[in-house]
Design a protein around this nucleic acid. Structure first.
Lengths: 190, 190
DNA sequence: GTCTATATAATGATAGAC
DNA sequence: GTCTATCATTATATAGAC
């Protein structure tokens, strides 16, 4: 086979998709080799400790994407809060491919997840939760209401992704996010 | 080592716990051998086709438990609907060990799940959804409201289990189920 | 029905050429 | 930085004794 070479972003995207689908234990180096077009030994060149190094790099990549495309726009005070929330819904609909794709955090928290992974997963969740929390307070929710609403929103995101996989109903995620939008606008008014 | 022998129920419970924690791809015969105390060749005696046979048996066992302890009590017209719902919450709090344990259906829908597994997983979800749907209509919800409420309840159950794993906050699941109880009682009244 | 022993395949990991 | 080749380990699966 001809020698392969891949840009860092395309490489990370490919690796990301495998872990999001199979979780840590379910992912094999053969799969990672296949999706990247790199031989296993080439993967070891980039990631000396193998699978654990790769998943850490994937989580770092994911974290950067989350901050850039979700968290920063949520906190951008130049746009009205309602617009920022509905923009986020558009972003995550695309990110989860309308519910057809898993959440990486759910996939990686399965099994006997290593502590290194747990910390990174937990940090990402908390960063997202904090941004939503601030948004809630910004639109006039009490401290307590913002806490309840932000946690509940992420529960619904994660839960809907699971339920859509259980049913193969391709509309579940979109419907659920549209419902969340309505609820948020109500809470803004009230 | 002394020869092992196990009753069918204890055997199924042990096998169940492994798949619920690791998913299908993440579970190995060595783990199943260890938790059951049976050698791998003994497992093949019970389940000739290996892992796929074991997971199908686990799903059949789970399905029976779900019908016996969750679905049938939900439809038992001898008790008031509110009581049946709160009894179910007690049952599933115990079943998920207050959110410390995964949902088998979530775990088994990860990865390239085989069609045989998908069908069984989907049937269990739908059976539970249908029972909740009937309960909703029984307490006076419209057809549409009952559909929305029952799906949303299962979304919250699955999502809360994911979020609790992401945060290691041991109260998340209990809080979330208590919230669902309040919401249900409100919907009964309204 | 369980065991020990073994076969076969896949996975994780390394050495060294280009 | 990628490859081929190889190795050690683990995973799946089978044979046959008790």
């Amino acid at each position: 086979m001809a020698q392969q070479s891949v840009s860092s972003d395309i490489l990370m995207e490919s690796l990301f998709e495998v872990f999001r689908c199979h979780g840590y234990e379910g992912t094999t180096l053969s799969q990672l080799s296949e999706v990247t077009g790199l031989q296993k030994s080439s993967l070891y060149h980039h990631f000396p400790e193998g699978k654990i190094d790769i998943v850490k790099a994937v989580l770092t990549y994911f974290s950067a994407q989350l901050h850039q495309h979700v968290i920063e726009p949520l906190l951008d005070s130049q746009k009205p809060p309602e617009k920022r929330f509905s923009n986020m819904l558009v972003t995550i609909k695309a990110f989860y491919s309308n519910g057809k794709k898993n959440c990486l955090l759910n996939a990686l928290s399965l099994g006997e997840a290593k502590d290194e992974i747990k910390v990174l997963v937990s940090n990402d969740y908390n960063a997202w939760l904090d941004a939503l929390n601030k948004l809630g307070k910004e639109v006039g929710m009490t401290r307590r209401d913002a806490e309840v609403w932000s946690e509940r929103f992420l529960i619904v995101v994660e839960g809907t992704l699971v339920v859509q996989r259980l049913t193969s109903n391709t509309q579940t995620f979109e419907n659920s996010m549209d419902y969340e939008k309505k609820q948020f606008l109500k809470l803004c008014g009230g």
